[in-house]
């Protein structure tokens, strides 16, 4: 996480099945060196993952008034959010009920958890 100012972070690279164990050396909050990678992609991943790790968050929320008897609609953050905001985003969508019909791209929760990112529907529910 970004709070680490100096030292080493050990990560598993996700770019290919090799799954290199990366050692990211950090000093004064800056990445000094990535070792353990066997290609350039590993270094890029290591740097990003230590300085600014992000994820798309997906969930589902309840719907009301579905003509097909659907109970939920799936949703996601419209773009990736900081990794440490994952649970805040989930908390922001929990308990939300949206009326049908719902279309892909409809905003379920605007600016979820103050990330500046909307949570949008990912399914057509009638």
């Amino acid at each position: 996480m970004s709070e680490l100012k100096s030292g080493h972070r050990v990560l598993t690279c996700i770019n290919c099945p090799l799954g290199c164990t990366l050692d990211v050396e950090i000093a004064d909050g800056e990445v000094v060196r990535v070792t353990g990678n066997t290609c350039k992609r590993g270094e890029v991943y290591g740097r990003k993952e230590v300085t600014n790790p992000t994820r798309i968050v997906t969930s589902s929320v309840f719907v009301s008034g579905s003509s097909t008897g659907a109970r939920t609609v799936s949703c996601k953050t419209a773009s990736d959010v900081p990794k440490d905001k994952i649970f805040d985003v989930i908390d922001a969508v929990r308990g939300v009920t949206v009326p049908c019909p719902v279309h892909i791209g409809d905003v379920i929760v605007p600016d979820a958890a103050g990330c500046g990112v909307d949570v949008i529907a990912t399914k057509e529910v009638f």
Partner: peptide, 25 residues
Amino acid sequence: LNQCIHNGFGLHTFKEELTGPEYAQ
């Protein structure tokens, strides 16, 4: 795909990361 609501689908087919229901749609 309808219950695979996580993302990561479609990188090869549509050159973007979709959720399962979006890929199906």
